[in-house]
C-alpha cells in the first residue's frame, strides 16, 4: 500500500485565556484508508512518545451521526467532501505531500476549550429555550393514535437529520446559527405535536440565539453547502415564517 506523508498546520490553544498559534507537524506513513481522525490518533500517539502535548479534538461515534467531530479542514468545515463529517473524511481525499490546515469552529458563541475543541453548549441553551414539546407523562400513546401525513412526516424527518455539529455556524460569514435553529424549529413545526407551543417556541429560541451572540442570516447558502446532513436552507425560510407568525403573540 502507498503510505502518504502530510504537513499539518494545526490551531493550538492551551485554554480559552491563552493565545492561539498554528503548529506545524510533519506526519509520515499514513494509510489512505485512515480517516482524518485516525490520522490524528496516530499523530497523538507519536506526540505522547516524544513527550509533547497531544492535539485535543472531539469525537464520539466516528460514523457521522453524533456531530462531535468539528474541524475546519483547509478552510471548509468538515472538509471539501460534501455531505460528510470530519470523522468520515478519509485520507485518500488528500494528495501525498499536501499541507492540511486544521482549525476549530470560530464564533464568539463557541468558546475555545483547547486546540480544536470548542464549547458548543450555546446550542443546548437554544434547545432548552424551546426546542421541545410538553407532553403528559404516563404510558406511551398508541403508535397510530395520531395520524400524520406522509409529506409532513418526511419534512419533519429531513429537518430532524440535523446532528447539531455547528458546521453551519463555522461556515457562515456572520457566524449565524439560523440553519441549526431552523432545523430544530422545522422538525416540530410540521407535526401536530409541535403545534400548541409553536409561537412561544420560535420566539424563545430566536431570542436565545441572539443572546448567545450568533449573527443574522444573509442567505448566502454557505451553511447548506457544508452541512454534513445536507439540511436545506428551506428550514431557514420556515424559521422566518414561524417568526413572522409569532409576532402578534
Amino acid at each position: 500500500m502507498n503510505l502518504r506523508n502530510y504537513t499539518l498546520k494545526i490551531w493550538r490553544q492551551k485554554d480559552k485565556f491563552s493565545p492561539s498559534y498554528l503548529d506545524t507537524i510533519q506526519v509520515k506513513d499514513i494509510s489512505p484508508d485512515m480517516s482524518l481522525l485516525e490520522m490524528l490518533d496516530v499523530v497523538n500517539n507519536h506526540l505522547i512518545t516524544i513527550n509533547k502535548e497531544p492535539i485535543a479534538f472531539e469525537s464520539d461515534c466516528r460514523e457521522g451521526i453524533c456531530g462531535a467531530c468539528s474541524i475546519v479542514i483547509n478552510g471548509i468545515p468538515h472538509g471539501k467532501e460534501r455531505g460528510t463529517t470530519a470523522c468520515q473524511l478519509h485520507m485518500r481525499h488528500f494528495e501525498d505531500g499536501e499541507t492540511i490546515t486544521l482549525e476549530p469552529w470560530r464564533a464568539e458563541a463557541f468558546i475555545p476549550i483547547k486546540d480544536l475543541v470548542v464549547d458548543r453548549t450555546a446550542f443546548d441553551r437554544i434547545q432548552q429555550a424551546g426546542g421541545y414539546i410538553s407532553v403528559n407523562t404516563g404510558s406511551a400513546p398508541d403508535a397510530h393514535s395520531m395520524l400524520i401525513h406522509k409529506n409532513a412526516a418526511d419534512e419533519a424527518f429531513d429537518a430532524a437529520a440535523c446532528i447539531g455539529c455547528g458546521a453551519c455556524v463555522a461556515a457562515c460569514k456572520n457566524a449565524s446559527a439560523m440553519l441549526f435553529v431552523g432545523a430544530k424549529i422545522s422538525q416540530l413545526a410540521h407535526l401536530p405535536q409541535g403545534d400548541p407551543e409553536r409561537k412561544r417556541r420560535t420566539n424563545a429560541m430566536v431570542m436565545q440565539m441572539e443572546k448567545e451572540g450568533f449573527g443574522s442570516c444573509s442567505n448566502t447558502l454557505e451553511c447548506e453547502a457544508v452541512c454534513p446532513k445536507e439540511i436545506s436552507t428551506k428550514v431557514i425560510a420556515e424559521l422566518n415564517w414561524e417568526f413572522i407568525r409569532s409576532i402578534n403573540n
Binding site: V72, T101, T220
Partner: peptide, 28 residues
C-alpha cells in the same frame, strides 16, 4: 445595524480564510 452585530459574532478570525463553496460573490 446587522453588519455591526455580524462582525461581533466572529471577532477572532480563522487563520486560513474560509473557502466559499456554496455562496455567490454577490451574496458576500
Amino acid at each position: 445595524y446587522l453588519e455591526r452585530k455580524n462582525k461581533l459574532s466572529r471577532i477572532i478570525q480563522y487563520n486560513n480564510e474560509l473557502i466559499p463553496i456554496g455562496s455567490s460573490f454577490a451574496s458576500r
